[in-house]
Every structure is written in structure tokens, then in C-alpha cells.
Design a protein around this nucleic acid. Structure first.
Length: 166
DNA sequence: GAAATTTGACCATA
DNA sequence: TATGGTCAAATTTC
């Protein structure tokens, strides 16, 4: 495989399929173009590869991989690579699910999430709360800054969305 | 006709 | 050498 460049920010989201529809990929506010799909060993479902539609216009190097979880077909594992430099930005919480709430794990490195800060987001408010154990209010803009701000010292490694409560 | 998706081949890495 | 990531031609959709 071609390894991604060192220092590139990556993070992973676990995203439930919208409304229980396996074909309804959650929208994160960006426009993606699919450039490949591969069957992965030890996984029943193929992995899809996307890059930013504006790659050629803006040289935007953002990419993402979408993998349906083997043990939970209603959940996607979405891995983002790099930042968007195309000037577009999400218009809401990166992904809104049915339940509305999710938690975010922000680590300093992929192997160290012990220093992570927690964040949560609600569909009703569309206002994430970010803090370290304590609840601190931030705006959506602040939240997307953490997600995509190239100046940020944090690496956003894992977004763990809570499953819809049925 | 343009843009997006599909799919098999190619290639780098472990 | 097996696996995973990307390329690019063919096909589909708008």
C-alpha cells in the first residue's frame, strides 16, 4: 500500500447509517468523489475511497475511507485524511445522526487518547459542547475549527457517535 | 456533453 | 508475495 505522508492529520468516525437505511451515507457537508473500492481481508464489506471533489481546482488533499463494520452493518467507519484547503466548509455539525448526540475523542496522537478532550453535539441545538470532562459550550464554528483547522495543535483521532436509542 | 461512479489493473509497502 | 491504495478506462447518470 502507499502509506500516507507523516504528519498528516487523520481521524476516524463511527457513523450509523441514516434512518437505518444502509444505502444512505451520512453527509458531512463536503462534496466527495469516489475514486476506488476494494474488498478488504477479514471484512465482509468493501472499503470505499473518496477524495475532495475540488482536488483539481484547489489542490485540496482531503480524503476519506468508508468501511462498513463487519459486526454492525448499520455503522460505517469513516476515516478522514488531511485537511480541506478548497475553501468549502461544513454547514452544520459534520454529521448528524438520528439520535442527535455523539461524543468526540480528541487525542494528541493516534496512540494516546488518554489526554483526549471530550465533545458532544446535539441535533436540536447543533451546538457542540467541548471540554475535558467538564461541559463547555463552543459554537459549531469552533467545533469545525477543531475538526479542520490546520493551525490546531490537537489531532482529532476518533469521533464515536452514539447509536440511535430505540 | 460533463461529471460522477464502477471496476480491474497497477504499484508500493510490509 | 499478499494486501491495500490509487489510477484510469469504461460506463452510468444528470
Amino acid at each position: 500500500m502507499r502509506r500516507r505522508k507523516e504528519g498528516r492529520r487523520t481521524w476516524t468516525l463511527k457513523v450509523p447509517a441514516l434512518s437505518g437505511n444502509l444505502d444512505a451515507m451520512p453527509d458531512d457537508g463536503y462534496t466527495w468523489r469516489k475514486y476506488g473500492q476494494k474488498n478488504i481481508l477479514q471484512s465482509r464489506f468493501p472499503r470505499s475511497y473518496y477524495r475532495c471533489t475540488h482536488k483539481h481546482f484547489y489542490g485540496c488533499e482531503a480524503k476519506k475511507q468508508v468501511q462498513r463494520l463487519d459486526d454492525d452493518p448499520y455503522t460505517y467507519d469513516v476515516t478522514y485524511y488531511g485537511d480541506h484547503s478548497c475553501g468549502t466548509s461544513p454547514t452544520s455539525c459534520p454529521i448528524i445522526n438520528d439520535a442527535g448526540a455523539f461524543s468526540v475523542n480528541i487525542g494528541a496522537s493516534k496512540d494516546d487518547d488518554s489526554r483526549g478532550a471530550m465533545a458532544s453535539c446535539s441535533t436540536n441545538e447543533r451546538n457542540p459542547h467541548i471540554g475535558t470532562g467538564r461541559e463547555t459550550d463552543f459554537s459549531v464554528t469552533d467545533f469545525t475549527d477543531i475538526l479542520f483547522d490546520s493551525r490546531g495543535s490537537y489531532i482529532l483521532d476518533t469521533l464515536l457517535y452514539s447509536k440511535p436509542q430505540v
